[in-house]
Design a protein around this nucleic acid. Structure first.
Lengths: 247, 247
DNA sequence: TTTAGAATGTGTAAATTACACACATTATTT
DNA sequence: AAATAATGTGTGTAATTTACACATTCTAAA
């Protein structure tokens, strides 16, 4: 290909000059917002907090905070998570950035949305704020959220629905050891549809990442199922390259 | 689930107060960077420009700019694209945000990466900057880019490879009317592997979104192929819900 | 202790989809 | 007119997905 070009004066910017430019223009703040999913009572839930902003008084919002000047984006998201839930070592992944001019009433704030998956069983006692609550994903359908957080939530939820079918994220929502019924309940809750039990089992067994712990469920009012754990190491070694055109 | 909670003093922030907080903290600038793909001479290419920063003199970089305080992120990306290539109505989608503390030498700059796909044929005369050039994706492998742009490019390229198999983006890289060979060449270039011609055709015909224009290729030194166009409207109506657990 | 209930655990046949593969056709060029 | 080079099409096989039913095991209640 022949691109027609003509020489131009190239103005070389100095580091100093650009620094000034940066400082003069940065009237934009940046924040992170976490869509924190949990799975409990066979229901997919999201952690929300009451807005501390008068304008949105009474409205539920995602957990978020401004990013500090010397802080990585991921670290900021992680900090929010730790501060609000007391949890460490949780699954956290960036999903999308929302930056419409009018999205925040206090001025220009661009926010980076993160999706987090936590195991509610291990950590339920660590939440100490009265205004922090789990909401079933279903119940959000007709709930208004503050800011553009409804839109952010929906983006992250759709992201999760797709992602969970291609990567083994779901296990982050379960205890280390889980029964296949629990796993299926989780997938049914996330995807919001019934799955065939036998085919579901076949699918997961054929992937060959589930390890039989030798233990059974305890305290269930019926025949206990076997408990499995997910072999992340084996998965990392064997994971597939995506292939196949399909739309 | 019973979350143990205790009442806390909730400090209600006023809009004014938060505004001050935002202003005091916003030492972070935000930019957009565009990974602009084109397809020419059966090769996937990326549009790069010479860094205007002394530190990266001589290095190629992505096209980007700081986001203005009163400008949406998407608009900023679109502006960069229009300014540098003179093109309108192009495919543009946000991919990921990069915000590590040390990523920019001039200070803290968080950048939102966009992927753009353009039809080189329609627009090749619009590029007027001598320091703006197409680089084959292959050739980037052993080229150093300025800033963290190599990483950004790689993220966007992998994103494209996956995305193009699930959504009809690819057509944005081709003329409105194209032969199946061109389409296959495109996919082979993006995915960097040979595909079976018959199965490729079968696949696309069975999706039933290709419309026979009745025209043939012109000026080819062999039997001309039929020209097709993609029926985006039909696609929008019929598009599938993704299904199938697989990892 | 017996029985009813409820969930676990397993196999197979049919249908669909993916893959490998070969030859006749059509236009161009010499 | 013949050689070349790419287009255009079909079929058999393997792999995957889907639909579907019954015996087993443990719990809880009678």
């Amino acid at each position: 290909m022949a691109i027609k070009t003509k020489p131009t004066m190239t103005v070389e910017k100095t580091l100093k000059g650009l620094q000034t430019e940066v400082e003069s223009i940065n009237k934009i703040a940046i924040s992170v917002d976490c869509v924190i999913f949990g799975f409990d009572e066979n229901t997919l839930k999201v952690l929300l907090i009451r807005s501390d902003l008068k304008k949105y008084k009474g409205k539920w919002t995602l957990l978020g905070d401004l990013v500090k000047p010397d802080e990585d984006l991921d670290s900021a998201a992680y900090r929010v998570l730790k501060q609000r839930t007391g949890m460490r070592d949780v699954y956290l992944e960036q999903v999308k950035t929302f930056g419409e001019v009018g999205r925040h009433p206090a001025g220009r704030v661009v926010t980076v949305a993160y999706c987090s998956l936590i195991n509610v069983q291990n950590h339920q006692l660590q939440i100490h704020d009265n205004e922090l609550h789990w909401h079933s994903v279903d119940s959000l359908e007709d709930k208004e959220l503050g800011f553009d957080h409804k839109q952010i939530f929906e983006t992250c939820y759709r992201w999760l629905q797709k992602r969970v079918q291609e990567h083994p994220l779901g296990f982050n929502l379960l205890p280390k050891k889980f029964s296949l019924r629990e796993l299926q309940n989780l997938y049914e809750a996330i995807l919001n549809k019934k799955l065939d039990r036998r085919n579901f089992r076949k699918k997961f067994f054929s992937m060959d990442f589930l390890v039989d712990t030798g233990e059974d469920e305890k305290n269930v009012p019926h025949r206990p199922g076997k408990l499995y754990k997910f072999d992340f190491e084996k998965y990392e070694k064997k994971k597939k390259i995506w292939a196949g055109i399909d739309f």
